[in-house]
Write a protein that binds this DNA or RNA. Structure first.
Length: 487
RNA sequence: GCCCCCAUCGUCCAGUGGCCUAGGACGCCGCCCUUUCAAGGCGGUAACACGGGUUCGAAUCCCGUUGGGGGUGCCA
């Protein structure tokens, strides 16, 4: 087996000396019990990268066998989020809720062949007996020989062999094996008649011709169940498994929707670019051979190797994501930057829509573009233009106008005077500040600060000259005088 | 408890027996550039968890320890 990633590796599938590999087909199989989160997005991405790299197919399968927890609108969100990320799939999405007959059929066959049996123990009884035995929790095989009849509160369980091992080779982790004795007789059919996800999993992966199962490490433990089920159902082909390392929080725990900020949708709302998100996600568990991290997706597709994926958990580092995002934002054309900023300029902007002036924004856009890390920061750089009054940042005011009141007053008086008559272009405006600053013998640091705070309310922002040009002489003088009178 | 997995700078990746006085990136800290903030340039900080083997030689192979994580549902 020269290629560890080849499906069915180990079994000769062609004539001597010529092993033909079936085309690669992978799937992303989310359960619609919540929005798409970072971990799911990464799993989807790695499946997509592998499929595209191999010239194979990516199928999308919605695992909604648990009707109580699955919600229709969440499926829609999953589609939209994947589309935002640029992860496209081949063919129609498969919904397991449309295919329950296949799974119940499989359960029937298992029951008939004796690979499974019915059980009427309540969870409480199972627990009580486990506690009584001391130690080992889990089901004890109580109903194996009881010939329980179908009925209320009856489930079907898979009869796990008492001996032997169930093992598989993982492309990322190598050989993984489980003692059958450690596996309990797991439920395959709920008492409400709906088959469990591992049954659907085993049936669908075989039925859909999935060649590689790429998913999170948290699913390693269910793999032996699926393997046992496939075997009992007479499915002979074996997919290649690849269990991805988990993405973890700062405490090195698996990201959780409850305690961690992981909804991809939230990142969309904050103004992360999909290409930055995808690029960053690709570096979690994988690295290009040449060490270049920020690079176009097609290059990543070309370089991606499943067997190069690492095996230890990766921390989702927001700081690094921000760096990626800022880099991608700066690389945009100005038009594209303006375009992508739209949503933060209107609906969610801090100013009334009618006060927005596209021309003014476009003048400042290239300067703002090289300063923001996420698009939601855009309004903060230009709001002084579209608001009747600047939003005064207290810390800035305190530092510049209160602590430096004396020089601020002198500077403002001088500038109000100069700006009344000077040319209204960026160079002239800045030259005036320089001239007055020098004349007043102020440290360079204090030259523009009072003007900036008076006009924009903040001590940081786009270059001052350009900002003033956009604001206009009247409004600038108005604000300078207002600030001066507040000193 | 039991089962499974993991273990290189604070973080993400390189490194698959000698090229390692361990490399890159993010972060952080300096300096330069700069009439704000960024960007850019230069430099710095910082890691092979521990203990045994195997070998002429180990970050790389084996065993153990410790630590971390995942699972242990009629969720997926």
């Amino acid at each position: 087996m020269a290629d560890p990633v080849a499906p069915g590796a180990g079994r000769a599938t062609g004539s001597i000396g010529e092993v033909t590999s079936p085309p690669v087909r992978v799937r992303f199989a989310p359960a619609p019990t919540g929005y798409l989160h970072i971990g799911g997005a990464r799993t989807a991405l790695f499946n997509w990268l592998f499929a595209r790299q191999q010239g194979g197919e990516l199928k999308l399968r919605i695992e909604d066998t648990d009707a109580e927890r699955s919600r229709r609108e969440l499926i829609e969100i999953i589609y939209r989020t994947l589309e935002w990320l640029g992860i496209d799939w081949d063919g129609e999405a498969v919904h397991q809720s449309d295919r329950t007959h296949l799974y119940t059929g499989a359960v029937e066959r298992l029951l008939e062949s004796g690979a499974a049996y019915r059980c009427d123990c309540t969870p409480e009884q199972v627990q009580a007996r486990a506690a009584g035995r001391g130690g080992k929790p889990g089901y004890d095989g109580h109903c194996r020989e009881r010939q329980v009849r179908p009925g209320e509160g009856v489930v079907a369980r898979f009869r796990v062999p008492d001996e032997g091992v169930t093992a598989f080779d993982d492309v990322i982790r190598g050989h993984i094996s489980f003692e059958n004795a450690d596996l309990e007789d797991f439920v395959i059919l709920r008492s409400n008649g709906v088959p469990m996800f591992h049954v659907a999993n085993a049936v669908d992966d075989a039925d859909m011709g999935i060649t590689h199962i790429i998913r999170g490490e948290d699913l390693i433990n269910v793999t032996p169940r699926v393997l046992l089920l496939r075997q009992a159902l007479g499915i002979t082909e074996l997919p290649v498994f690849a269990h991805l390392p988990l993405i973890v929080n700062e405490k090195r725990q698996k990201l959780s929707k409850r305690r961690d900020d992981v909804s991809v949708g939230d990142y969309i709302d904050r103004g992360y670019l999909p290409e930055a998100m995808v690029n960053y996600l690709a570096t979690l568990g994988w690295g290009a051979p040449d060490g270049v991290e920020i690079r176009p997706l097609p290059e990543i597709v070309e370089l991606f190797r499943l067997e190069d994926v690492g095996s230890s958990g990766a921390f989702f580092d927001l700081k690094k994501l921000d760096h990626f995002n800022a880099t991608y934002i700066r690389a945009l054309t100005t038009d594209e930057f303006v375009n992508r900023s739209t949503r933060w300029l209107f609906g969610e902007a801090p100013w009334p829509a009618e006060r927005f002036d596209a021309k003014a924004f476009e003048a400042l856009a290239p300067l703002v573009q090289q300063r923001v890390e996420v698009l939601s920061q855009v309004p903060g750089y230009v709001d002084f233009v579209f608001l009747a009054e600047p939003v005064v940042d207290e810390a800035s005011w305190e530092k510049v106008m209160v602590k430096g009141a004396e020089s601020a007053a002198a500077m403002l008086d001088a500038i109000i005077d100069a700006y009344g008559t000077c040319d209204w272009d960026a160079d002239a405006l800045m030259e005036a500040i320089k001239v007055e600053g020098e004349r007043l013998a102020l440290p360079r640091k204090q030259w523009q600060a009072p003007v900036r705070v008076a006009v924009t309310g903040r001590s940081v922002g786009p270059p001052l000259g350009e900002s003033l040009v956009v604001l206009g002489r009247e409004r600038t003088l108005e604000r300078l005088r207002a600030a001066r009178s507040r000193l």
